[in-house]
């Protein structure tokens, strides 16, 4: 283990470390703590400049309810879920199929297609913006939930395929081989041998895509107009414009937007980290 385990160090050193930990964490998360404190203050506090002192009132429930009453936060949240969940299902399914094909079959186009998916995943969004927006307008997908789902699913398929292909490649090939010898069809091999084995990868990639898509702001701006199909990220942005002097409400709304991915992270931490750090250990 590196650095040297502190258990092997002096008692004072250990004590210092244990004191330093929470202090460093506090500094690290200071912006977040500050915004949380703001979100439970009264508007009086904010307007009189009492932003860091003791709040004159604690308005946790009041402020958060007010966000829902005064804005369409509930609609935005609903939209975010309606965009994110189908996107995850669609892109993970497509990528599972494609990743399987690229990992198991040896054919000439295997590597070029794999590279195409990987490369596409890295391009700047702006190079896609005009054609994708144009196509969405002409097919009636502009300013719809479905339009956003289809784009995100297609784009995320690149990353997911990269991930699934590498994961499936690590599986023991004999399993598939023996299935073939037994005369099991290719689709059945995929469904009954491969899919059960890649469940951890499916979980990892799903939580990552959930977070990426939930946090999207660019495409929400480009592919929507008005309020009806906006996700929460774009919603919070427009709230920021409307409530110029209501920082307590903007703060509360920001934190509401952050809750689902944060909850997802804490619930699925192991998978989340496994997904994110895939490929960063062995080479």
């Amino acid at each position: 283990m590196f650095p040297k385990p502190i258990a092997n160090r002096s008692r004072t050193y250990q004590l210092l470390y244990k004191i330093a930990l929470p202090i460093v964490l506090l500094i690290w998360l200071l912006p977040l703590l500050a915004i949380f404190m703001t979100s439970i203050r009264s508007s009086v506090d904010i307007n009189t400049g009492n932003v860091f002192g003791w709040p004159s009132q604690f308005l946790l429930i009041e402020n958060y309810t007010e966000v829902f009453n005064r804005s369409r936060a509930l609609l935005y949240l609903k939209n975010s879920f309606m965009i994110t969940i189908p996107t995850v299902l669609l892109s993970v399914s497509l990528a599972c199929l494609a990743g399987y094909a690229l990992a198991i079959y040896r054919f000439r186009w295997s590597l070029p297609i794999f590279f195409l998916f990987v490369a596409g995943n890295f391009v700047p969004f702006q190079i896609l913006m005009i054609p994708v927006r144009d196509m969405s307008v002409s097919t009636g997908l502009y300013n719809t939930i479905l339009g956003q789902v289809l784009f995100h699913a297609a784009f995320q398929t690149g990353f997911c395929t990269f991930f699934m292909r590498n994961f499936i490649k690590e599986l023991p090939f004999e399993l598939i081989e023996s299935g073939r010898i037994e005369g099991v069809g290719e689709i059945k091999i995929f469904l009954f041998i491969v899919v059960p084995l890649v469940r951890p990868a499916l979980a990892a990639v799903s939580v990552l895509i959930f977070t990426f898509v939930w946090n999207d702001f660019f495409w929400a701006t480009v592919l929507t107009q008005g309020e009806s199909v906006k996700p929460i990220t774009a919603g919070v942005r427009s709230l920021n414009g409307q409530y110029v002097n209501n920082w307590h409400l903007v703060s509360a709304a920001s934190l509401i937007a952050a809750i689902p991915p944060v909850a997802m992270f804490f619930l699925m931490q192991k998978h989340f980290i496994a997904g994110l750090t895939f490929g960063s250990v062995k080479q």
Partner: peptide, 14 residues
């Protein structure tokens, strides 16, 4: 894990 929109707002305020 937090959206960059939220990070941006937090720091505008900061």
């Amino acid at each position: 894990v937090i959206s960059q929109v939220v990070v941006g707002l937090i720091f505008s305020w900061f």
